[in-house]
Computed example of a mutant assay.
Amino acid sequence: MLIPALPAAWRRHVAALTLSLSALPLAAADAITVADVRFAPTQQLQGQQLQLNGAGLRRKAAFKVYAAGLYLEQHAGSAAQMLAQPGPKRLRVVMLRDVNAEELGRSFLRGMQDSLDRSTFSKLAPSLLRMGEIFAQGKALKTGDGFTIDWLPGTGMVVTINDQILSEPFTEPGFFEAMMGIWLGPHPADAGLKQALLGGSS
């Protein structure tokens, strides 16, 4: 039995619908699994439901270091779009190998230094030192350990390791932006991970 050809108007409608669907960001109902780490499609933070913006893998040489997922209220395809959102934000990181915590903290400091000019880096020095102290408290982050970096409007930036808040919030203006620059700045630690966090494929 022959199927009659669709009218031209219907063909145009179907083509437009297909194109619009392909251009949509990651659906809120979709979880992402990265190296056996599952990132749920949504998370609750400060009474708001955040959607998984993207998730990917941090590699160093031939090693898989950690998986990371970014949660926002609305999809963001750039760091500027992410920072422009007024609501809470979360970066979730899960370790894929044992890493010395102090060494990881130092790598974060180097990453911020790479993404900041000297003047801004100097202004943020007190918060940078405190961030280093947080990671120096633990001898190592084991495979499967995780930490989150949360931005909470009205409170500041909060760092949690294995569900334990390790310090008072970082309230210094610009520090959360500087911290996120490690992953989403112009000179990210891993360009493939940056692309994945912003909804692309690594």
Rank of each mutant, 00 (worst) to 15 (best):
G144P: 02
S119Y: 07
T42H: 09
P7C: 04
R38W: 07
T33I: 14
S201K: 14
G105C: 05
M131G: 01
I3E: 06
D150V: 10
F39C: 06
F121M: 09
P41H: 09
K194R: 14
M112D: 04
A191L: 13
A140D: 10
E172W: 00
A35P: 06
A189R: 03
G174Q: 03
R12M: 13
G138S: 14
A15H: 13
L128R: 13
H75S: 12
F175Q: 06
L104K: 02
A5S: 11
K64V: 00
T171R: 13
W183R: 04
T120K: 13
L24W: 04
P173F: 08
V14M: 12
L57Q: 10
P126S: 05
P188Y: 05
P188Q: 08
D36T: 12
P88G: 02
A40V: 14
P169F: 08
L19F: 09
M95Y: 01
A5C: 01
W183D: 00
L70K: 07
G132W: 10
A140G: 06
P88S: 06
P41W: 00
G87K: 08
T155K: 08
L83Y: 08
G132R: 03
L21T: 09
L128C: 04
L6P: 01
A191D: 13
A27S: 13
G87M: 03
H13G: 13
D145M: 03
M112K: 00
R92G: 07
A15E: 15
A31L: 07
L124Y: 04
A16Q: 15
P169G: 11
F39G: 04
S20C: 05
D190K: 10
I165T: 15
V159Y: 04
G56L: 00
L72Y: 00
A28P: 02
I182C: 05
D117V: 01
L128N: 09
M180Y: 06
V65H: 00
E102F: 10
F147C: 02
K194S: 08
F147W: 11
L104Q: 10
Q49E: 14
I165P: 11
S122P: 00
D98K: 14
I182M: 01
L124Q: 04
A23G: 10
S202H: 14
L128G: 03
L124K: 03
V93M: 02
A61S: 07
N53K: 05
M82Y: 00
G54I: 04
P88A: 06
L57E: 00
P41N: 00
P41C: 10
N100S: 12
L6S: 11
A76G: 01
A31N: 06
Y66N: 10
A61N: 10
A84W: 01
G138A: 14
G47T: 04
R38L: 13
Q44C: 06
R106T: 03
P169W: 08
F175S: 11
L70S: 03
Q85R: 03
G146R: 06
A8M: 08
L91F: 00
L129A: 15
F135S: 08
A79M: 12
A15R: 15
A140E: 13
L26N: 11
W10M: 15
E103A: 15
A23P: 01
L45G: 05
F108Q: 02
L129V: 13
